[in-house]
């Protein structure tokens, strides 16, 4: 299998969770075991654009119980005899191999996944965002070692904040940062801005005004209430990303309203 594989370096490995549960997109070649007309193939593929049932295969690291996964879209691209090419966008943890098998069952002829390429993992895709090959990696790293120009690093590495691009953000005051780095919950006075689509229980990313990721949290209130409330906890901490002491310790400071 080939395609988009996010690699987290050193401390940014703390954000790897953001990829595991994020959406994915693949381009897939499904090989049918019998002849089926294009109209029927298109129709059955469209039926799977839904919440589907899956049990992880024998060779997997997760518990093998039936679970549901959402297929956001399946775009039929073309067919060549019994080979069907399609693009699929789905929830993380969806087994495309099983999807092909199930499509084959519904079509009545059987099918298997012939080839798979991942074209998106969360915010990372094939276009833009410095998508590099192993060759590029070796080349740029060597250039960096020789020339020591920091701009070379930006050719193949991006800040870990880019991994959080799909997670709704809250921006907080400098005075709140160090407490958060120590695991404190985020309270209303610390909030400067909040993004839409946050519900109670949503995973959120806490950022500084400079755009640095402080921590991953879980919202206790939805967007509108976070905007309107002046006191109380707004989000609990899930994972601290920023080292303590990056910002000064101002435990007692309360911003003037």
């Amino acid at each position: 299998m080939t395609g988009v594989l996010p690699i987290t370096l050193e401390d940014s490995t703390k954000v790897v969770q953001a990829f595991l549960y994020s959406g994915k997109e693949y381009v897939c070649v499904m090989k049918l075991h019998g002849d089926v007309g294009e109209t029927r193939v298109r129709r059955v593929l469209a039926e799977f654009e839904d919440e589907i049932y899956q049990r992880p295969p024998l060779r997997s690291s997760v518990k093998r119980q039936i679970r549901t996964r959402r297929i956001y879209y399946i775009n039929y691209l073309e067919a060549d005899g019994r080979n069907v090419l399609f693009r699929v966008g789905c929830e993380g943890g969806t087994y495309i191999r099983k999807l092909c098998f199930d499509v084959g069952e519904v079509l009545g002829v059987g099918a298997h996944m012939q080839e798979l390429r991942r074209t998106r993992a969360g915010p990372f895709s094939e276009d833009g965002q410095t998508h590099v090959t192993l060759h590029d990696l070796a080349y740029y790293f060597n250039e960096w070692r020789e020339k020591q120009d920091p701009n070379i690093l930006r050719e193949f590495i991006q800040p870990m904040e880019s991994a959080l691009a799909l997670i709704p953000k809250l921006v907080v005051r400098d005075s709140a940062v160090d407490a958060l780095c120590h695991g404190a919950n985020l309270t209303a006075p610390g909030v400067l801005s909040v993004e839409s689509h946050i519900e109670k229980g949503s995973i959120v990313a806490l950022f500084t005004l400079k755009g640095e990721a402080i921590a991953l949290g879980k919202a206790v209130l939805p967007t509108e209430e976070i905007l309107n409330t002046n006191r109380g906890t707004v989000a609990t901490l899930e994972r601290v990303l920023m080292p303590r002491g990056t910002y000064p310790k101002i435990w007692k400071s309360v911003p003037k309203q």
Binding site: T133, L134, P159
Partner: peptide
């Protein structure tokens, strides 16, 4: 140390 790579595997 706080970097990620978008690798084409």
């Amino acid at each position: 140390r706080y970097g990620v790579i978008n690798l084409n595997k």
